[in-house]
Simulated scan of single mutants.
Amino acid sequence: MEFRKIEMFVEVVRQQGFSRAAKVLFSTQSTISKAVRQLENELDAPLLDRGAPGIVPTPSGEVVYRRGLRLLAERGDMERELEELQGLAKGTLVLGLPQIGAATLFAPVFAEYRKRFPGIDIRLMEHGSDELEELLRAGRVELAASLLPVSEEFEWLPVRREPLVALLSPDYPQAARKSIRLDALREVPFILFEDGFALNRIILTACRRSGFEPAVIAKSSQIDFICKLAGAGLGAAFLPRIVAERRTSGAVGIIDVEDPHMVWDMAVIWRRGAYRSRAAQAWLDVVRDLYGGQAE
């Protein structure tokens, strides 16, 4: 049984589709489909319920997916441990970074890391926090940045904690205020990030705690576009204050939200108990030097 076939099957389940899996793995849909069929033949068991709508693993497929994640993660650990024999003079560190706040928080870490360890090749994968945690489970990244809280399966090093602020155009009367309760925005449409961004979960949970379900008018993965939509008066958007202050113009107001749960709590995370390469440990050391956190 080849690791590549397991990797393809796992990605099909993760991406909920053959075409999306093919894009992630830089392959073709037919190649992915053929590999999954071959894996089913080798295991003598159907792995996908092809009569169901969407991608639904069979009971056997659930076992292969769960075990496959562990196998791929262990393979990544083995490769990194072997790479340790070369020391920090050269090697590769695969990082997962979010699309929100990465430039603000991690550009200084990159610069310092490159200065200390110029021979280390850093490879980036950029996704929302939920997707990054899945990549971490599969061993496709060694470290990832994600929003707290995270599952007990991960260890973490805090980076920065910022309040979330509302972005509103002057068209809304609430924009004239310096701070606002979240329930004062119940009649305002919301502009959120795409599914898979943990920030959405923080916002929606806070709304439900305040007694309402917001009307979502638009979603995007692009911060600048979301800011433009808010500035054009389409609705309220939400960003960490440190990001909002650097990415917005005078066309949109930045209003504090009076809710202690509306917090963006960024950390670097890794699999609990997994092998951690010296390149990864060195990255954590730089993060700690710059931001002063202690691992949990």
Rank of each mutant, 00 (worst) to 15 (best):
R50C: 05
A52G: 14
P53T: 03
P59L: 00
P59A: 03
G61H: 02
E62T: 01
V63F: 09
V64K: 02
Y65N: 14
Y65S: 13
L69A: 06
A73S: 13
E79S: 00
R80T: 12
L82E: 11
E84L: 13
E84V: 15
L85C: 11
L85G: 13
Q86N: 02
T92N: 06
V94Q: 05
L97N: 02
L97T: 02
P98E: 00
F106C: 10
F106Y: 15
P108W: 07
V109M: 04
A111V: 09
A111T: 12
Y113V: 06
K115V: 12
K115L: 14
P118V: 07
P118L: 09
G119L: 15
I122E: 03
R123N: 07
R123K: 14
E126F: 11
E126G: 09
H127F: 10
E131F: 04
L132E: 07
E133Y: 10
E133C: 11
E134M: 05
E134S: 07
L135W: 05
L136P: 02
L136Q: 03
R137M: 05
A138H: 02
E142Q: 13
L143H: 10
A144K: 00
A145P: 03
L147V: 03
L147D: 01
P149Y: 13
E152S: 09
E153F: 14
E155K: 10
E155V: 09
L157S: 03
L157A: 04
P158S: 07
P158K: 08
V159H: 10
R160A: 07
R161S: 11
L164T: 07
A166R: 05
A175H: 01
I180E: 08
R181F: 09
